[in-house]
């Protein structure tokens, strides 16, 4: 059914897809997590309200979130070249993927942290807790289930974006699907890669939800 070369190519595709998705999500959180925390703190009901900072970050996120990924990919080519040295391949795709993921992550983190019961935050303030303690122990500690569900959603979205990068030779399963399925009308290869993508998303979703449930002590 599949020759050896084909199989090797698919395995490489899976490896590249996982590599891009996981690393971009990781780098995305390095930017997005602090972003979400700052949004939560500086919002009007936060523990350090600051209208100006909140508004600026809010606008930046809205702008970057409204740029379609494909356009962002092209817009960032000079930056990608600067960081990675080239603009195609799996490693290069991590740059635009990270930039697409970060504002999404910022929003997800913000919404998770804002779910934390205001009363518990107030109790911590009444105990004389430092802001750092409130951020890590109360906000992140209490919202951890929601944050983990967020990670799962982000992984799925980033994986979807990574497949789109195939259009410009981004590598990974999406690249294979486009090259064989779209340019060469090889429907079989396209469907097989599609199945792999679905299975990977399912696995990540399942594992993420399981971990979230394990960590939740609220019921």
């Amino acid at each position: 059914m599949l020759d050896k070369a084909m199989l090797e190519m698919l395995l490489e595709g899976i490896r590249d897809t996982l590599y891009m998705t996981l690393l971009s999500t990781f780098f995305g959180y390095i930017i997005g997590l602090p972003l979400g925390i700052v949004l939560t703190l500086t919002d009007k009901d936060g523990i350090a309200p600051n209208k100006i900072i909140y508004r600026i970050l809010d606008i930046i996120i809205n702008i970057t979130r409204s740029i379609p990924f494909l356009i962002l990919l092209i817009l960032l080519i000079p930056l990608t070249k600067l960081i990675v040295g080239k603009s195609y391949g799996a490693t290069a795709t991590i740059v635009p993927l990270t930039f697409a993921a970060a504002p999404l992550i910022g929003r997800m983190v913000e919404s998770s942290l804002k779910e934390v019961n205001q009363g518990v935050i107030e109790a911590a303030i009444s105990m004389g807790a430092r802001k750092r303690m409130i951020i890590f122990k109360v906000l992140i500690g209490e919202a951890r289930t929601s944050l983990l569900v967020g990670v799962t959603i982000v992984l799925g979205t980033v994986l979807g974006y990574s497949a789109m990068a195939g259009v410009v030779g981004g590598g990974g399963l999406g690249d294979i699907a486009i090259r064989y399925g779209y340019y060469r009308y090889n429907t079989k290869i396209m469907l097989i890669t599609l199945i792999f993508i679905v299975v990977i998303v399912q696995l990540m979703q399942g594992l993420g939800m399981l971990a979230a449930k394990r960590l939740d002590h609220r019921r």
């Binding site: 518990v120 109790a123 009444s126 303690m133 500690g141 002590h217």
Partner: peptide, 28 residues
């Protein structure tokens, strides 16, 4: 830290054990 407060809805850390909740002000 020397003015304690208790609330109508208790405001405990839901993701922490009872022991960890009581330890919290000491951790602070």
């Amino acid at each position: 830290q020397k003015i304690g407060m208790i609330f109508q809805h208790f405001n405990l850390l839901e993701q922490q054990t009872v022991l960890e909740n009581v330890c919290f002000p000491l951790e602070i």
